[in-house]
Write a protein that binds this DNA or RNA. Structure first.
Lengths: 216, 216
DNA sequence: CCTACCGATCGGTAGG
DNA sequence: CCTACCGATCGGTAGG
């Protein structure tokens, strides 16, 4: 419980961050706390069903107070989705720089793909579901990032086919299938369940290698 | 172009059904035309960004006029999603009744799954994306239907493993992966493109058989 | 099937 | 960081 200036008493909603704690921190940290609260709500009920007042309430604040830390509700969504895609692309680039073997590249790329969809299902869920909620020009920018991410996997598959280690009639379809597998993990994965993110990743790597009929 | 009572002239939006034609038909057909217009808009911009006025405008009607044909905007979404899931389950049941061979059941189930996601990407897209937009008790009912659909595939995989024709450590994960592949088709498939729905289905059947390492 | 309108909700601003 | 409030949007109803 915290006490407001007016002397009114409010109780913190379940799972909420104590703003009194956050307030003691630097502005970037506060901004991050707001973004995290928004992400949770966007994932639970969707961007359009989440109001500024909802986000504030989950931090024990009033809605308008959030504007000390954010530019707009829309920008909150843009940042969430953009950061998520940048993270994925950075992971892919690290892999591509670390080995030339298409089999190993595929294995590690599926690992990154699944792990980062399982590590924080909220981000993955919001990024894929709320793309149509983005206004221009942000939507175009985000789609370009997603295309880049997809293209990086496709190129691995195409190089594997050219090298004779993968057997695929249509690498584009295989890329879609493998991407879909990983994205979908965010729809059911719960941390603390019977399977860890690493368990799921290992199994999905096997699925992907079978799907492309990797040699060896 | 049609002329209203006021003498105001309106032009039909691109791709819209001519309501003058629809109006000559029976009430169930009119209701179907409204549902189809709603489905197109829900798929394009999402349920919450589509207003009753938008749906009306796409049929060259005013928003309130729709209430002669529908109960509520929410019921429109419920019907779209429910019908789609019933269609899929019916397809699965036909397959399960037609053969006992798990390999053949899997092949046909993937065919139904992919074909019906490709045949009308709008339905598939809306059904998966707008589940959180459903209110209770409809949401619970729809989730139960989706679980039934998923369970039917899982059972095929489990029977195949028991019969020794599939090789899987975790059939549940394989079921998720195969379902994800098909659902995702609605995110990129366009009728009239280089690949037909049947082409995609054939390729995805192969992917699924590889993924479970089907014998034979 | 239309116009007029109600009540509710929402993002964001003013001002302290 | 808060209260008060503006302007816009929306689902749905009344009444013809």
């Amino acid at each position: 419980m915290t006490r407001t200036g007016e002397g009114r008493v409010r109780t913190l909603p379940r799972g909420a961050v104590a703003w009194a704690t956050v307030r003691a921190m630097s502005e970037p940290t506060r901004k991050e706390a707001v973004r995290d609260a928004a992400l949770t709500l966007f994932a639970e009920r969707g961007y359009h069903r989440t109001s500024i007042n909802d986000i504030g309430a989950s931090l024990n604040l009033r809605g308008p107070s959030l504007y000390n830390h954010i530019d707009s509700k829309h920008q909150l969504l843009v940042d969430i989705v953009t950061d998520f895609l940048h993270l994925g692309i950075a992971g892919q680039e690290r892999i591509l720089a670390s080995t030339d073997d298409p089999v190993e590249q595929l294995r590690q790329m599926v690992d990154v793909h699944v792990s980062y969809n399982a590590a924080d299902p909220r981000q993955s869920y919001v990024a894929t579901r709320e793309m149509s909620s983005l206004g221009e020009p942000d939507r175009t920018r985000v789609v370009a990032l997603r295309d880049e991410y997809e293209h990086n996997l496709l190129e691995v598959l195409e190089r594997g086919v050219a090298a004779g280690v993968f057997d695929l009639d249509n690498p584009q379809l295989a890329a879609y299938a493998i991407l879909a597998m990983g994205i979908h993990v965010s729809a059911w994965f719960k941390a603390g369940g019977p399977l860890s993110g690493a368990d799921v990743s290992r199994e999905y790597q096997e699925f992907a290698l079978r799907l492309v009929r990797a040699r060896g």
